[in-house]
């Protein structure tokens, strides 16, 4: 690969028409860089889950990414309601999503667990009433 890349996308809460655009753009960056397909899929899924969380729960947010020869790191930060109990939110099946989100096929309580499953390192920091920051890393294997 040789060269790295970095960038930032801005996310708007409740904008379901454009939900997924940032993750789609990140996926396109990784494809242009010639990253392996399985690494791209894991990154795209984790980024999309995080992006949907911002669109569903927050007012606004941003997704920052950095790609080096060895890893892809993504930070998704939002201005939102925050997560009162992160351990509970990491439990498969736990969700606070309203019905209209479930009707779109999301909010079944699989988002954070699925981000953890698809990444090599995940940290979640949240302040109730202020927002949440997710940081995850995916190693690039040669």
């Amino acid at each position: 690969m040789g060269n790295g890349a970095d960038g930032i996308f801005f996310l708007t809460g409740k904008d379901f028409n454009n939900a997924g655009t940032a993750s789609s753009n990140l996926k396109a960056v990784l494809e242009r860089m010639g990253i392996a397909q399985d690494i791209i899929r894991r990154t795209a899924i984790a980024a999309f889950e995080a992006e949907m969380n911002v669109v569903i729960y927050a007012v606004a947010g941003m997704m920052k990414y950095r790609v080096t020869d060895t890893e892809i790191s993504v930070t998704v930060q939002d201005m939102g309601q925050g997560i009162p109990n992160i351990d509970l939110a990491m439990t498969e099946g736990y969700s606070t999503a309203p019905d209209h989100i479930r009707a779109m096929g999301f909010g079944s309580g699989m988002g954070l667990p699925n981000i953890k499953k698809n990444t090599d390192n995940l940290s979640v920091n949240s302040i109730v009433g202020e927002g949440t920051t997710l940081e995850f890393v995916i190693q690039i294997k040669d």
Binding site: F16, S23, A44, I45, E49, M104, G105, M110
Partner: peptide, 26 residues
């Protein structure tokens, strides 16, 4: 997003844009 395999066919009754985004990512 959690359980499907790469390259598979998806059968669904949901028709919103998030289905396409999900398919793209997965």
């Amino acid at each position: 997003l959690s359980f499907s395999d790469s390259g598979c066919l998806l059968i669904t009754g949901l028709t919103n844009a998030q289905v396409i985004r999900t398919a793209e990512m997965a």
